[in-house]
Structures are given as C-alpha cells and as structure tokens.
Design a protein around this nucleic acid. Structure first.
Length: 440
RNA sequence: GUGGUAGUAGCUCAGUUGGUUAGAGCAUCGGAUUGUGGUUCCGAGGGUCGAGGGUUCAAGUCCCUUUUACCACCCCA
C-alpha cells in the first residue's frame, strides 16, 4: 500500500463530514457578518511569497520548478494573494471590502501535533477602513465563529495586543523605528526564552540599557486592562512629547474594547501585550486566540496590516484580517466533546422481494431522489431480517417495503423506524404522501 | 534541521529469558433467520509483526540502518 506523504491526510467519510462541519460554520458565520467568499490559486509564483516575507521563507515553502522552468510554490497562506486581488481592483471596490476564503494551504514543515504540511484555513480580510471599528468587526467575527462551535469564554481567550502602541513606547524610550522592530522580535520570545538571554539581545539593540529596556517592556507586558494601561502611560510618558500620540492611541483602545462590550464579547478578550506576532508586516492591533486550559497552538491569529497592499504593488489600502486553521480547532473541539459524531443517515431505505418488485421500487426510488431525498436500497437483495438490520445501520428514518403482497394490493408498506409504526400507502399518490411524511 | 519514545489485522491492543502454524475484542462478511431493525449465538475472511540488513539451529522478540508517527526543540505567515 502506498502511504500518503508526511503531513498529508486521507479523508474517510467521517473525516470529510467533520471537515465539512467546520467549513459550514466558518462559511455561515462569515456570511452572517456580511463577508463574501473568494479564492485564489493553490499554486503560485514563488515571488508572491518572497515579496511579502523575504527569501528566508523559502525554507518553509512547498516549492519546486515546474515544467516551464517557473519557480512555483503551493500556497502557504492566502494573504498575499488577497492583498494583490484587493490592490489591483482597489479603486473599483466598494469599501469596506469584506472577504473570506476557505482553502487548503501547504507548508513544508516537520509535521507534529496541530501542524501538518497540508491543512485548511479560514482566511478573513477587511480592506479600506482605517478606523478600529474594522478591527472590532474582524475580531468579533473570529470570536463569534468559535462561539458557534459551542466554545465559551471559559474555553478560549482572544489575547489582544498593539504593535502601534509598542512602537510609540519604544520610540519614547529612545529607539528609532528599525531598532524598535528588532526589539519587538525579541519581546515576542519573552515567554520561552530565559531572561538573561533576552537582556543580552536587547543590549545589542540599545547598548548598556538592555536590562532597563526589558524592565520597561515588562511593565507593559504586565498590563491586563485599559485602566492599567492608562496608568502605565501616565507614569512613563506624561509631560513628554509622546504623550499626545499615546493618548490618541489609548482612545482607540477605549473604542475597540467598548465595541466588544457592545457586541457582548468582552469576556473573550484579554489585554495582553506579549502578543506581537512574528511577522513584521502587522502594523496595529494584533491578536491570537488560545485554548484557556491547554498549551496547544494558537487557534487563530491576525491583526492590522496597513502597508501590505502597497508592498504587493497596489495603492495604500488599510487592511485587517485573521486566519484560523482546521487542525488545532478540530483537536480542541474533540477534546471538549464538541465535535459531533457524523453518522450515516438516509431518509428512506427501500427493500424489495423479487424482480417485479424491484422494477416498481426503482421507479419510486428515482422519483424520491429527484425530490432531493436521500434514498438507498440493497444492490443484491437479501432476506428481510438482514435488510432491516442494514436499514438500521444506515440510519434510515423510513423503510419502504415492496413485496408480492404489497404489489398485489398496489400499496407500499412504510415503516417509521424510530417509532416502529407501520402503514400502507396506496401507490396512486405514494410519492406525494411519502414526501409529506419525510418533511414532516 | 536537532533530540527522545514508539510502530503487531481496518481500529484498540496482548504476545513470557529468542522456541510449534502470531492471538483477543471491536469492525467487516456469511449463517441461525427468504416478510420486519438495535439483543443473542455460530462461523469466515483479513498479517510480508513499518521496510532493509545482521546475529542465531531458531527472531514479532536481540543488534544496525532506514522510514513513519507522537513528544520536546528550531520555526510558526
């Protein structure tokens, strides 16, 4: 037997049903928020990704040279393509542009739990609105989706941070923009790297002041609420030239958090400045959603990326978005017992006895199928006891019996499996009556 | 890319210091049961013991290599 490539999955019916369940909720809730579905190619020119993320990214890509000597890569994410799509029609698109996409992504990584080489991702993007009402809408959708799966604020938390505020503070502490960005990549590691190592790295950015810088940063990292943030900014920056921009930014925070309150989603949101996200293209509010209990990987993550569209060759177009993968989500839902088991179900299972009965049965089966009902029947007959057992296993609501007795009386015997009730329906109006029974 | 652990039927797993023809439960198929389901009983099929090499009279078991999965790193759009 030939195995799948590492990190790729086969989907048996139960797996497909589970996947479709995730897709259906993703799609339904995104549409309910007024987002429209889009998609892009699965195979892309390599430059699309190196343009956005630099040459280092190639190590993580599923890339190769095609028969036309083109450097290509399976898509590891959708965002650059969406940025191109939005950018190239930017002037023609009604703002705000609210798009989402469900698709398979590929990354050449070492497979482990919650991380495969092929996975499905929901991608949500909102273009053309600078106000943080757009951030609220996008994050609100992210939380609402998780709620729709049955997850509560006891299960998951959206950790909300802000790269703009970080940069203002670092700027206020004397770092230029390039140093500040380097500093953020160090801060991103604060949960998993030892303190002395962090100080060393920060020393490399601000000579002799690494320790002080880390302490200042830790002040920000400790903050858990807006009032604490107010206090922090007052303590560090009141009376300085940075006070005004910081005050303005805090007003945006106030507006964003108020939006979550108005949406009834506040309990899902936690101020947490340790989230800065690895990639440098994020420009404002950033967030990640985690399982509150476990140490599993992030369920979703995203933020503001106001410069990407221009970087991809389009006009200035502010943007905010997030991605959510199927693997971690499904793991969590299974852990929490929120993943339904997807049993085989049928509206009708038809059993017959003899060739003449089969002729009549097939005729009715096709008519019921045309009405959209799921109807199945044994391909090779069998005794009635066995066939009832099969009907039961198949999850059939009704069993329709076509036999010599019924044929003679010109009826179909209909058994409702759950109730065990039986009745005979005259064949003259059988399809109509059967349709009524199934519907209701 | 670096370490650790593991791999026996479709699934979950037994398999003694190396010793007849590798087992069980579940699932599948058939029968008891050719006009009535969830229970029960009987039976069958299904294994190159992940792959390759070595040690041995003899390897699922010991050794080496390799591969895959899981876990921890690196990374994480």
């Amino acid at each position: 037997m030939i195995e799948t490539l590492p990190g790729f999955r086969q989907f048996y019916p139960e797996d497909c049903a589970a996947r479709n369940y995730l897709f259906s909720i993703w799609r339904r809730v995104a549409v309910s928020f007024g987002f429209q579905e889009i998609d892009g190619p699965q195979l892309e020119p390599l430059e699309l990704f190196t343009e956005k993320s630099g040459e280092e990214i190639v190590g993580q890509l599923f890339n190769f040279t095609d028969k036309g000597e083109r450097n290509v890569s399976l898509r590891p994410e959708l965002t650059p393509r969406v940025a191109v799509m939005a950018g190239s029609k930017a002037n023609a698109l009604r703002k705000p542009v609210k798009w989402f996409s469900l698709g398979e992504m590929f990354r050449y990584e070492k497979p482990q739990k919650g991380r495969l080489r092929s996975f499905y991702q929901l991608n949500v993007d909102l273009f053309g609105e600078e106000n943080c009402s757009a951030d609220a809408e996008v994050m609100g959708l992210c939380i609402s989706i998780l709620k729709s799966f049955g997850l509560t604020d006891k299960d998951v938390v959206l950790r909300l941070s802000d790269r703009t505020l970080w940069l203002h503070c670092l700027n206020g502490w004397g770092l230029d923009e390039a140093s500040a960005l380097r500093c953020l990549t160090v801060i991103d590691k604060v949960e998993r790297v030892e303190r002395s190592e962090l100080v060393k790295q920060l020393d490399g950015i601000m000579t002799g002041k690494g320790d002080w810088l880390l302490e200042s940063a830790e002040g920000l990292l400790k903050i858990k609420s807006l009032s604490e943030l107010d206090g922090f900014v007052a303590k560090h920056f009141s009376g300085t030239e940075h006070a005004a921009v910081l005050a303005a930014r805090i007003e945006e925070w106030r507006y964003l958090l108020k939006s979550f309150e108005d949406m009834g989603l506040s309990d899902f949101v936690q101020v947490d400045f340790s989230i800065v996200r690895g990639l440098a293209y994020y420009t404002g509010f950033v967030f990640e959603v985690f399982d509150r209990a476990g140490e599993s990987r992030a369920l979703a993550g995203g933020g503001r990326y106001n410069h990407l569209v221009r970087k991809m060759g389009g006009p200035d177009l502010p943007a905010v978005g997030f991605g959510m993968g199927d693997v971690t989500l499904r793991n969590l839902l299974e852990e929490k017992g929120l993943m339904a088991t997807f049993a085989d179900t049928l509206d009708c299972y038809v059993i017959y006895n003899g060739e003449e009965s089969r002729t009549e049965a097939l005729c009715d089966i096709m008519r019921l199928r045309e009405l959209g009902f799921s109807v199945d029947y044994p391909l090779k007959g069998g005794n009635f006891g066995k066939l009832f057992k099969t009907a039961n296993q198949r999850g059939a609501r009704f069993v329709l019996i076509y036999g010599p007795d019924e044929l003679e009386k010109n009826v179909v015997k209909v058994k409702e499996m759950l109730a065990g009730r039986e009745q005979e329906l005259h064949r003259e109006h059988f399809i109509e009556m059967m349709a009524q029974l199934i519907r209701g």
